[in-house]
Simulated scan of single mutants.
Amino acid sequence: MLRASLLLLAAGLSGCAQPQVARGGGGIVSVNPCTDAILMRLVPHARITAISHYSQDAAATSIPLDLANRFRATAGTAEEVVALAPDLVLASSFTPAATREAYRRAGLRTLFLDVPATIEQSEAQVREVAAAVGQVARGEALVADMARAAAGHRPAGPAPAALLFITGDLVTGGGTLLDDMMHHAGLRNAAADYGLSYTGTLPAELLVARPPAVIIAPDKGRSSGLRARLLPETRTASFDRMLVNCGGPTIIPAMARLRAIRAGLS
């Protein structure tokens, strides 16, 4: 959800010399790829001891790979994280109880973060991370950028129905951050109309019977070809894979792309 937009997003960071990344002891360890993206906007790179290995995977990252590859990455195991002795660990609320206990026993300061389902929740999460890393002003600046992206022009008239595929035949339904972004861009989430919540797959028969105005997808693989054969009259639009994984700063280029898609349907 672009690569050019994300590079612009990171320009303030990548325009300087390659950071001297901490290699153990102190600093911040993020085992959550979404907080990796937030950290890139909030703190000097030298404060980041390690990021999630997902950020070095093209299918899961929300930051450019050349930036992610400058950092040590962990698989998020308790052993790896405890050995780094960080000042702060940023993790997911889905972290297993045993891992949480290992962090506690090691005396690590931890922040467990939920998956935001709305732009407003993502803004609140940025503020939470900013407070934890002592960068409130930078957090507010990022939130302001996100709010401006969300508050852009929404075309008048009925919202066209759109299906946004995350990968393959997996589509985003109602109650998700992508669903909220589609709404702000002036698009109606057809998957929510079909009754799908969160993410899942849809029967081909349903798509043929009630086709959307546009199909948005990040790939051109086998599933994309099948959809083109089933719905030859339905418009398609590309959406970079990096835009579907997280909120935070990713919302800015994602909203720009969704608005461009909506403008093309007018």
Rank of each mutant, 00 (worst) to 15 (best):
R3Q: 09
L7I: 09
L7F: 07
L8Y: 08
L9T: 01
L9G: 13
A11V: 13
A11G: 11
C16R: 15
A17N: 08
V21Y: 09
V21I: 11
A22Y: 02
I28A: 09
V31E: 05
D36C: 14
L42A: 08
L42V: 12
V43D: 06
V43L: 13
V43Q: 06
A46L: 04
R47P: 05
R47A: 09
S62H: 07
L65T: 07
A68W: 04
R70G: 13
R72H: 11
A75T: 15
A75Q: 14
T77Q: 10
V82Y: 01
L84G: 03
A85E: 11
V89N: 04
V89C: 05
S92T: 15
S92G: 10
S92Q: 13
S93F: 04
A102Y: 00
A102Q: 12
Y103T: 07
R105K: 10
R105I: 12
L113V: 07
A117D: 13
T118L: 07
V129W: 08
A131W: 04
A144R: 15
D145V: 08
D145R: 14
G152Y: 00
H153A: 14
H153R: 15
P155C: 00
G157R: 04
G157Y: 00
F165R: 02
F165W: 07
I166V: 14
I166T: 08
T167R: 12
D169S: 15
D169Y: 11
L170E: 08
G174A: 12
G175L: 05
D179R: 06
D179W: 00
G186W: 00
N189A: 02
N189Y: 04
A190Q: 14
A191W: 03
A192C: 04
L196F: 03
S197W: 11
Y198K: 12
T199A: 14
T199G: 02
G200F: 07
A204I: 10
V208S: 02
R210L: 01
V214T: 04
I215G: 01
A217Y: 10
D219R: 14
S223L: 05
S224P: 05
L226Y: 14
R227G: 03
A228C: 09
R229P: 02
L231N: 04
T234K: 05
R235Q: 09
A237S: 05
R241C: 01
M242H: 13
C246Q: 04
C246F: 06
G247S: 09
P249I: 15
A254Y: 03
R257H: 13
A260Y: 03
A260C: 01
